[in-house]
């Protein structure tokens, strides 16, 4: 039972208006693993996440959750979308938004049980949101909103948490906090995490696996298996170097090659 992957992405392909967005992308996520989906902006990360969630149909290929078709286990997935705009004029407390993660889809009159209320409090503590539990979510800072959204996604006990660019538009301090938080929550609650980002360095200490996406193709494995000059050069179709400096990784293309699709490619001045 335990060796059935939580998520299998099997040769997913998507084309739009004659352009290939995703080309036979495959990877697996096992229980409790922390996976980074790394690629530059516009490379298809959001499309891939939406396909995994069943919000969009793939052209080819299949997504399986616990070995079964997606529809069977949709409830097992939690999602933090990119750019959730929360209005400061709406009287919705952090606590309310987390509770809607439990029953936001439910019609009817049922009141929340004691267990459900306790679960909400537990999640508020898990993401360190106790301090602003009674504040309007719309009035919180980006990092604080991100925590509340993570609690909202986790409160229904998903097996896999998907996050679309949760670190974009955060200051470096908040990035570290959110990464540490996700790592801790993943370990404490036995949740697998799939997180998309256009920058991998903040994730290097916590990533079990990486899915490196460029030009519709993906390479996946441990960071050491994937973030290598030969693997990434094959993926990009031209030579790139992988430099490891002070625990950070830089993917560098030769001067003159198009480096636009390299995530967080450093600006190189002339040698």
């Amino acid at each position: 039972m335990t060796d059935v992957p939580v998520l299998e992405v099997d040769r997913i392909g998507v084309s739009f208006a004659g352009r290939t967005i995703l080309d036979a992308v495959s990877f697996e996520i096992r229980a409790g693993e922390f996976t980074g989906l790394i690629g530059s902006n516009g490379v298809g990360k959001t499309t891939l996440l939406r396909i995994i969630l069943g919000l969009q149909r793939p052209g080819t290929g299949e997504v399986r959750v616990l070995g079964a078709p997606l529809s069977r286990h949709r409830r097992s997935l939690g999602y933090v979308p990119q750019k959730v705009v929360l209005d400061p004029d709406v009287p919705l407390r952090s606590r309310d938004l987390v509770a809607l993660g439990l029953d936001g889809q439910r019609f009817g009159f049922s009141r929340r049980t004691k267990e459900q209320r306790a679960r909400v409090e537990e999640m508020l503590d898990a993401v360190d949101a106790r301090r602003f539990a009674d504040s309007r979510v719309g009035s919180l800072s980006g990092g604080e909103q991100q925590r509340v959204l993570i609690a909202h996604a986790l409160v229904s006990r998903p097996l896999l948490l998907l996050l679309d660019e949760p670190l974009a538009n955060l200051d470096p301090g908040s990035v570290q906090e959110i990464v540490a938080l996700l790592h801790r929550v993943s370990a404490d609650h036995g949740v697998s995490v799939l997180l998309s980002a256009h920058e991998m360095n903040a994730l290097l200490p916590v990533m079990d696996r990486i899915v490196y996406l460029t030009d519709g193709r993906a390479a996946s494995g441990t960071t050491d298996e994937v973030v290598r000059s030969d693997v990434l050069s094959r993926l990009y179709g031209h030579h790139v170097d992988v430099l490891k400096l002070h625990g950070r990784v830089l993917v560098v293309a030769e001067p003159g090659t198009d480096a636009g699709d390299i995530p967080d490619h450093p600006t190189l001045t002339a040698f």
Partner: peptide
């Protein structure tokens, strides 16, 4: 806003998509 002790709220919204990596 909730009373935030030493919370870097304004900086939080600032775009910071580039990690402070040493440029080669």
């Amino acid at each position: 806003r909730h009373p935030a002790p030493a919370d870097p709220a304004p900086a939080d919204r600032a775009p910071a998509d580039r990690a402070p990596a040493a440029p080669a």
